[in-house]
Design a protein around this nucleic acid. Structure first.
Length: 597
RNA sequence: GCCUCGGUAGCUCAGUUGGAUAGAGCAACUGCCUUCUAAGCAGUAGGUCAUGGGUUCGAAUCCCGUCCGGGGUACCA
């Protein structure tokens, strides 16, 4: 049992014994002891004053005395104002380290046969353009949430819904048909998703030009936007696609394949993957069927123009369109179909959608709609809503060329990692393959940590010039600490020193050493908490503070230079265990840690 | 307009179910490599926690108002 829990129970016991009152353990507040005060943990005594009917100091004294007398682990105490600071026996900390050091799955809950199955949807790209910075945040969050869910003993299915149909891909298709000159990824050497994205941009250029010309000829802007030849042609193409016109379908398949091949490379570089990928071209018809069923059952209604709507005003929401007047489906229709297919395919206990907060309303509506359609899991779906990534000059706008491309960004960062590593020159003796692998680990570590350390709910700012740092509160700093420890361990092994996990109980631990064990002991709680509130940031911040503390210890204590063998052994075990937790925690963020850097 | 989320150091961010003197990093300045990796460590400086009230032993945290900003409110996705 964790020491916090033990102390809480004993405080409850003390309240009963001293003041004859019954309280719940949840009423006992325990916090970290201030740095400038001696003690390992602090009990807040204010909540108990109404039981003791005495001053804070006196109540603290009485509780402290009871705890030292009745709990072996509590060696001593002090009271400052209403705060009871407890000093915990050193042997306790040693035993914590021993169990952490020998537990391969320290901090993780193991999945059981009846563990819940959680499905996480993330990434969810459109097939008309390559992935950008916003997608990166989504992918990193989705992957990390998945790892955290697993670490909390759940079963996981990672899924992706690819939006492969609709007017957007038709725009790229039309532009390629008109001005593409038969270009392919092979003929141009351009990555498929980028090539298709280029035609999307080209479409927009022509479209804008056409609008301008029409407006000059005296047409209103609204009319011009509807009647420009390009958009008319793209719409026509979409209709043909829905009618399964062979020529259009073939072009669609060809261009989508280019995009998928491109996405696969980006996903691989980012280190994310999926167990099951759905395509909207497969799910939108299922969604339509569901909407028609809802219509038949009177859950939805049809207007005179044949469009189908859901009236959610009684649920505190608005009216929502589900099928257009021409019978084509909208975003919501597709999501309904996708949800149905997924629950047909898997026995899902919990569904999590990793989607930006601009769609909060959409998921509120989806939840109600699924519920109305008779799916009892509708209400339980969880929208993991994250904030946008902003650039120094505001939002990313593809038309203004301010989009930070995912592939470019990763490549640039790998280049920075390479330069930095070469300058520092610590990788002598590595093969080219090992070098490149290390550069990539560092570059991706920097990028991933940067994006995951901030609270997912909040918008974040990404400054391409400044955001990617390798010093301070960064991924590489954490990776560096891991490499440092591994280096010491390698040297120890070379010297023939073997680790013993049976620690000498007579050791005299320094303050920093005890602090470090205390920090280690928090890891399982942090993993649990991160799982409860779906927050990779919690893991990131924890690992950072652990590593920060370790570096202070490393600076002030020698490890291999220590002559006392049991002290040296203790420090090695401590260091190794910290390296393990760093590796484990970074793993939850999808970040690798190098042996050398 | 209505709904919703946010505002903490020059900048980027932490800050536990309300708890002690609000913390990191970056940027600036100053020290520390003959010794286990200096991508490190230590120090200086930097704050009206947007703002005005309220709740209480105690508020960055909870409630109300105001100001500022993001997002949503589409037969876009």
């Amino acid at each position: 049992m964790h020491i916090d829990q033990i102390v809480k129970e004993k405080v409850v016991e003390a309240i009963g014994s001293l003041y004859g009152q019954t309280v719940d353990t949840s009423a006992v507040q325990i916090q970290n002891t201030r740095k400038d005060v001696e003690g390992d943990m602090t009990v807040v005594v204010f909540p108990f004053l109404r039981f003791s009917k005495k001053a804070p100091e006196q109540t603290g004294e009485e509780l402290g005395k009871y705890l030292t007398d009745n709990v072996d682990l509590v060696e001593n105490f002090s009271v400052i104002k209403g705060f009871l600071n407890l000093m915990i026996a050193q042997n306790y900390w040693l035993s914590v380290l021993e169990s952490a050091a020998t537990d391969d799955t320290f901090g993780f809950a193991q999945p059981q046969k009846d563990s819940p199955l959680v499905m996480v949807e993330y990434s969810s790209p459109n097939t008309n353009k390559p992935l950008h910075l916003g997608h990166i945040r989504n992918n990193l969050l989705g992957y990390s949430i998945g790892e955290i869910i697993k670490a909390n003993g759940n079963k996981l299915v990672k899924t992706n819904i690819v939006n492969d149909r609709g007017i957007h891909i038709c725009k790229s298709m039309y532009a390629w048909q008109q001005w593409g000159e038969g270009k392919t990824p092979q003929s141009t050497g351009i990555k498929g998703d980028h090539l298709v994205g280029d035609f999307y941009v080209l479409f927009d250029k022509h479209y804008k030009q056409e609008i301008n010309e029409l407006v000059e000829q005296g047409m209103s802007k609204e009319d011009a936007e509807q009647k420009a030849p390009s958009i008319v042609a793209a719409r026509d193409m979409l209709r043909k696609w829905e009618a399964k016109d062979p020529e259009v379908i073939e072009l669609w398949q060809t261009m989508n394949q280019w995009v998928y091949a491109g996405f696969d490379l980006t996903y691989k570089e980012l280190g994310v993957d999926f167990d099951k990928i759905y395509h909207e071209s497969d799910t939108y018809l299922v969604g339509k069927d569901e909407v028609f069923r809802g219509l038949k059952e009177g859950v939805f209604y049809q207007r005179e123009d044949q469009s189908v709507w859901a009236d959610l005003t009684k649920d505190g929401l608005d009216e929502k369109i589900l099928l257009r007047s021409d019978g084509t489906s909208v975003y919501m229709t597709q999501d309904i179909g996708t949800a149905k297919l997924r629950f047909d395919d898997y026995k899902i206990d919990k569904m999590i959608y990793v989607v930006g907060n601009e769609q909060n309303y959409h998921f509120q509506v989806l939840s109600v709609l699924l519920d109305k359609l008779g799916y009892d899991w509708g209400k339980g779906l969880h929208h993991f809503s994250y904030g946008m990534v902003e650039l120094p000059h505001g939002k990313m706008k593809s038309r203004e060329g301010t989009v930070v491309d995912a592939d470019d960004l990763m490549a640039e960062m790998i280049e920075v990692a390479r330069k930095t590593s070469e300058e520092l020159g610590k990788l002598e003796g590595y093969t080219d393959e090992e070098l490149n692998r290390t550069y990539k680990i560092i570059a991706l570590g920097a990028l991933k940590y940067f994006m995951l350390k901030v609270d997912p709910k909040k918008n974040m700012l990404f400054n391409p010039e400044e955001s990617i740092d390798f010093n301070g509160n960064t991924g590489p700093f954490i990776q560096y600490t891991h490499a440092r420890i591994r280096s010491v361990i390698r040297k120890a092994t070379k010297k023939g020193i073997q680790l013993s996990f049976d620690l000498d109980s007579t050791l005299n631990l320094s303050e920093k050493e005890q602090e470090l064990i205390k920090s280690l002991s928090l890891y399982p709680t942090v993993v649990k908490e991160a799982g409860d509130i779906y927050s990779p940031a919690l893991i990131a911040n924890y690992i950072y503070s652990l590593v920060k503390e370790f570096n202070q210890f490393y600076h002030d204590h020698t490890i291999l230079g220590e002559e006392n063998e049991s002290v040296r052994n203790f420090r090695l075990v401590l260091s190794q265990t910290i390296a393990d937790v760093v590796k484990s925690g970074m793993g939850l963020l999808g970040i690798e840690v190098p042996e050398r850097m």
